[in-house]
C-alpha cells in the first residue's frame, strides 16, 4: 500500500478546500439557513406536524442529505477532473499507485469535506428547531456511507467528463431533481398513489428515509432496505471505478 501517495492526495485536496473555505464551508451553511427561513419559518409555520414531528425539524435530515449529495459529487468530481483538464493527471497515471489508492485519496478527501458540511448544517439547524436524534449511531452510519458513496459517484463523473459542461450535466439534470423529489420536504404518503410507486424508483428516497428514521424513527421504507440500497450503490460505484482504471476508459486510451 502506497500510504505516502494517499496522504499527499488527501492533504492536497483538503488544502484546496481550506484555500476556498468560504465557498467550501460557508456557502452550504448560508444555503441551508435560507431553506430554514423559507420552508421552516415562512411556509412551515402554516403546515401541521408531519408524522408527529414539526415541519421545521422534519426537513432537517432532507436538507442535510441535499447538501451532502450535491457537495460530495461536486468535490469529488472536480478533484479528479481538474488534473485531467490541466494535464497533470500524467503524474497520477505514471506513479506507482493503484486505482484503489488514488480513489481513497480523492474520495476520502471529498467525503471528509461533505461530512464536515453535514455536521455544520446539523449544528446550524439546532439554532432554528429543537432537534433530538433517536439513533445517533445510525445517523452517523448513514451520514458517512452517503458521503463516501456519493463522493465515489462524483469521482466517476469526474473521470467520465471530458469538459466542464459534462461535469455539471449529471449533478444539475439528474441529482438535483432526484433529491428534491426524494422526500426532502415531504413524506411519500403525501403523494398520490401512482406517484408513490414512481418515487420508489428514486434511490435518494431510501437515503433520506433511513437518515430521517435515525432522527425521528419515522420512515417511508424499512431502515434495512435503506441501508441495503446505500451499500448496493456504494458497491456499484466501486466496481465502476475499478473498471474505469482497469480499462483506462477516458484515462489511458
Amino acid at each position: 500500500m502506497n500510504i505516502y501517495a494517499i496522504r499527499v492526495i488527501y492533504k492536497y485536496e483538503m488544502l484546496r478546500a481550506w484555500k476556498t473555505i468560504l465557498q467550501s464551508f460557508a456557502s452550504p451553511v448560508i444555503s441551508t439557513v435560507l431553506y430554514f427561513v423559507v420552508f421552516g419559518a415562512a411556509i412551515g409555520s402554516r403546515i401541521e406536524q408531519v408524522e408527529g414531528v414539526s415541519y421545521g425539524a422534519f426537513i432537517v435530515p432532507g436538507l442535510i442529505m441535499l447538501a451532502l449529495l450535491t457537495h460530495s459529487i461536486a468535490n469529488a468530481s472536480f478533484g479528479i477532473f481538474f488534473p485531467k483538464f490541466t494535464g497533470t493527471i500524467y503524474e497520477l497515471l505514471s506513479a506507482p499507485i493503484s486505482f484503489f489508492e488514488i480513489m481513497v485519496g480523492y474520495v476520502g478527501a471529498a467525503a471528509t469535506k461533505s461530512f464536515i458540511i453535514g455536521l455544520i448544517i446539523l449544528g446550524t439547524a439546532g439554532f432554528f428547531v429543537p432537534l433530538e436524534i433517536a439513533h445517533p449511531v445510525w445517523m452517523f452510519v448513514f451520514l458517512i456511507l452517503t458521503c463516501i458513496s456519493f463522493s465515489l459517484f462524483g469521482f466517476i463523473i469526474g473521470l467520465w467528463a471530458i469538459d466542464f459542461e459534462k461535469l455539471q450535466l449529471i449533478p444539475l439534470l439528474v441529482i438535483t431533481p432526484l433529491v428534491f423529489l426524494g422526500g426532502s420536504f415531504y413524506t411519500i404518503d403525501m403523494l398520490p398513489p401512482a406517484w408513490q410507486t414512481v418515487t420508489l424508483f428514486n434511490p435518494v428516497v431510501y437515503l433520506i428515509s433511513g437518515f430521517r428514521w435515525s432522527f425521528f424513527e419515522v420512515s417511508d421504507v424499512s431502515v434495512w432496505i435503506s441501508l441495503g440500497m446505500v451499500l448496493t450503490f456504494l458497491l456499484v460505484c466501486l466496481v465502476t471505478v475499478w473498471w474505469m482504471f482497469k480499462s483506462g476508459y477516458r484515462l489511458k486510451q
Binding site: 502506497n2 500510504i3 505516502y4 501517495a5 496522504r7 499527499v8 492526495i9 492536497y12 503524474e91 497520477l92 506513479a95 506507482p96 499507485i97
Partner: peptide
C-alpha cells in the same frame, strides 16, 4: 513534495 509522495517516498 506532492510528486515525491505520489511515488511512495
Amino acid at each position: 513534495s506532492f510528486s515525491r509522495g505520489l511515488f511512495g517516498k
